[in-house]
Design a protein around this nucleic acid. Structure first.
Lengths: 137, 137
DNA sequence: TAATACTGTAATAATAAACTTTACAGTTCA
DNA sequence: TGAACTGTAAAGTTTATTATTACAGTATTA
């Protein structure tokens, strides 16, 4: 799994704390410690799904466009990383009972596991993450 | 996450279906479609924790050494992949409220997520996986 | 209207992680 | 003693992730 999921959480949390003005990808990337192009790529996804709004040109940037309570980590996971739990099985031996069928069995189990994980992640909205961040201070 | 977890499940399932004789790393690796050295590395872990027994020399190999019902996927996950859910955060900006504290907050959330995943994986013992494999046939 | 400060995105380069391969020491059996 | 195994380390290869470069498009401002 790449870190798009955590970068998305990081970016949204950042934006949640700047509700009144636009933030640039440079500012967010400096906070997260990654390259601005990477942030723009992740934010581009979040924009497509309406969580944020962007504006080009001078004074432009990104800003939150939803209620913090209504964006939870499972929503973000699905956008950035759905299927990431699935094991990448190499081609196994079709002439062996185990090799031939393990892929299907694991696929089904990991699908269940991801759904189960989803139930957990739904408990955390960006609002909760923001509160946790503030509490750390 | 590398595929040690799924290779361990594959190997144990394979051994579960050969309860009466030793299986070589070559045979298992052919079933799983990976290199025998990799299988031996994974099996070495499983051996350390008593799930299997190995024997060197001619006629040697690996064999299951526990009750199938008593080895579940969470046990195996812990051995092979514990912490794999944890996001690998790059060093973020300590002078930013979000950058400075996101790591701790995410660590806590993902720790919970992994425990939650554990509850799901505990539902699957190797016996169940074997049954699913047989059922696929 | 020209310069500046942004987003958006593609293409390439660098780095890191995963996996394979080679090598060889140790063990058991025939 | 030789063949068939496990056990590991080290080196090489491949793949995935991330950074960098480049540049087109858009809004602002002077």
């Amino acid at each position: 799994m790449n870190s798009d999921f955590t970068l998305a959480i990081h970016s949204l949390t950042y934006l949640a704390l700047q509700p009144d003005r636009m933030s640039t990808s440079d500012a967010i990337s400096e906070s997260a410690g990654v390259h601005p192009v990477r942030i723009r790529k992740v934010l581009s996804l979040l924009k497509k799904h309406g969580f944020i709004v962007s504006k080009e040109g001078t004074g432009g940037g990104f800003i939150f466009a939803a209620e913090l309570e209504n964006v939870n980590l499972w929503d973000i996971y699905k956008l950035t990383s759905e299927g990431a739990l699935q094991p990448k099985c190499p081609d196994s031996n079709e002439r062996c009972l185990v090799g031939a069928n393990m892929h299907k069995v694991l696929f089904a189990i990991f699908l269940g596991a991801e759904e189960h994980l989803g139930e957990f992640l739904k408990n955390y909205s960006i609002k909760e993450v923001v509160d946790l961040i503030k509490h750390e201070k």
